[in-house]
Design a protein around this nucleic acid. Sequence first.
DNA 1: ACCCGTGCGGAAACCGTATCCCATGGTTAC
DNA 2: GTAACCATGGGATACGGTTTCCGCACGGGT
Lengths: 362, 362
Amino acid sequence: MSQRKATSDAGRATIRDVAERAGVSVASVSRVLSGNYPVSEELRRRVMKVVRDLDYVTNAHARSLAGGGTPTVAILINNITGAAFAHVAKGVEGAATLRGWLSLVGTTGDDPERELALVNLMRQQGVAAVILLGGAYDYDEYQLRMARFARSLDAAGSHLVLVGRPPLEGDVPATTVDYDNEGGAYAMASHLLSAGHRRVLVLPGHAELTTAQGRLRGAQRAFEAYGVPFDPGMVRHGPYDYEHGYEAVEAALHDTPDFTAVLAGTDVVAAGAMQALRAAGLRVPEDVSIVGYDDIPLASQLTPQLTTVHVPYEEMGRVALRAVADRREGGAGRRKSADGDHLVLGTHVVVRNSVRPPGRHG
Amino acid sequence: MSQRKATSDAGRATIRDVAERAGVSVASVSRVLSGNYPVSEELRRRVMKVVRDLDYVTNAHARSLAGGGTPTVAILINNITGAAFAHVAKGVEGAATLRGWLSLVGTTGDDPERELALVNLMRQQGVAAVILLGGAYDYDEYQLRMARFARSLDAAGSHLVLVGRPPLEGDVPATTVDYDNEGGAYAMASHLLSAGHRRVLVLPGHAELTTAQGRLRGAQRAFEAYGVPFDPGMVRHGPYDYEHGYEAVEAALHDTPDFTAVLAGTDVVAAGAMQALRAAGLRVPEDVSIVGYDDIPLASQLTPQLTTVHVPYEEMGRVALRAVADRREGGAGRRKSADGDHLVLGTHVVVRNSVRPPGRHG
DNA sequence: ACCCGTGCGGAAACCGTATCCCATGGTTAC
DNA sequence: GTAACCATGGGATACGGTTTCCGCACGGGT
């Protein structure tokens, strides 16, 4: 009958319970468990036996309060259902686990309010870093908002990492892991152009989404490079989903039916586009060629298999985590490493079976 | 120059910093923030101003140590990339957020070792519940392992929830959220049989996976009900992925080419099967019908759109979280609610365009 | 004018662990 | 033989909050 509470209480066993039952001090138990202090074999055996008997695990909250604790990174994602994001998350998770780090995943559902709430929540958790995934909507407020996040986190000893979107402007304490979005689009469009296509339906995504903007720019640059006039009327914006792909093609077949290829902003959009073409009695790629972007598994599972741009999502996740880990070890060694704050990974075209030289009109 | 440390130190601001700067006591700040104690308007204003100035957030670890804290649930998943799991996770996350709860996601990669490590990790975190997602490999050791998990978590005031797999045997403190797996397979197979198919290639999944076992049983029962002999030679086991679907059909076309339909254990497997049939010059559904299982978005994006079994994954996630929340509020009210520990959700066939009466052979 | 209830602020205990500092006993060195 | 030392173990304290217990001031009722 201890004064505090009985060992057999409801709730988990504490280190005190273990100490008491093993007849040693609390400090000794802590030492045996963390193993960073010399301890006699006898003591170790006694303590470990009780630990097993009680099925004791240390309280992570208490441990991290006391200074120890496992580093944790938070992954903030718009929609856990998106295949591309899932791969980044997988990369982060894998790299984190490798170092014994923990990772949280939160979803924002494209809601800035919720994003703010989550960032604060993560700040409360004392995470080593907050990793924001996916393209951003470049509203006016966006830069300010992110800068505020970055400074808040930085002040709390944490760090903001942006994955898959352009770096922030100005002197903001954040790391960006990016891929050559525009270059990929340039290469993809070039592929179509060199196959002979001239009238191309472009479905870059939402006009405000940074990802879409980059993909559109890349395509335009390719047209310029080939000396082919770029018709803004052939561009249709919309969300990155199957329905948009379907409807955009449907509409285009009505308005500007002379296109011979579709440059989709995403593999999923390409899938929708493909379906719409089929519904209209057109064959892919005999009548119309299609290309996507992202190279998610779906791309190789479509019929015909989709030519697309490979983006190293999983590696981006790994790189993001490594950046955080490095910075944490480097400590205050180099403040403001003006470079190394922006990592860019390469993309490349994966040629499959969804492109042929134009045949329908051309 | 406080004795402890200056407010402008590196690291986050503490509640003491806020109190000091606002010229009030620590207790008052805590009261203002938690709002469960009467506080004068003047005090509230003073404190809130400082909170904003310092961008203060409470330390979640300290808070949860002191008894308060946000309830947290952990989702353990084999592969974050799987579409079905992602939807369950979404359901859990959504329901958790609705209550202001937090959710963690960890991936096991099908590794029992890692699963153990994660469960312990979550126990350390003091999570309200650990939610295990997806079918289980029913090895001998499995039941013991899970029972141990359940008891460990239970003893620590946490709880084990199994989603998408059969309930544990015996008197184990765990909740199961399940769907009518066998019934769905029964209905799906019946659909095929009533369309006239007799020779059906069955790709249930891994033989040891509970999900696969249930789906196979359902199919067999349907054959019995229709008085059609079930040929074990038409069953091919394998992983739930695209490649398996492809290869299984390829092999079957060589060994037993007289099938007129494919009953795939998963939509993704169905996609692979479809591709293999096409590669062999067969049309879907004119020559061979195909059905899937899960009703992930992919199913409606294939050509032809896939007839499949709808599983309410997202709802399962919501239900799982609700079960945890209810139990937590119910408190010790009803120990051992022998029922209510096993919730079963319904499934139903979604008819699309991948099934026709047999034409090739029949 | 006195008493008591009410409303609100402060001091201190406690949550579970890690770590610093010190005590002890046995060794080694002089 | 004694002093200095190493290897261990214990006690106390800090980490950052929440909460209970107290006390003070103020106001109204009699």
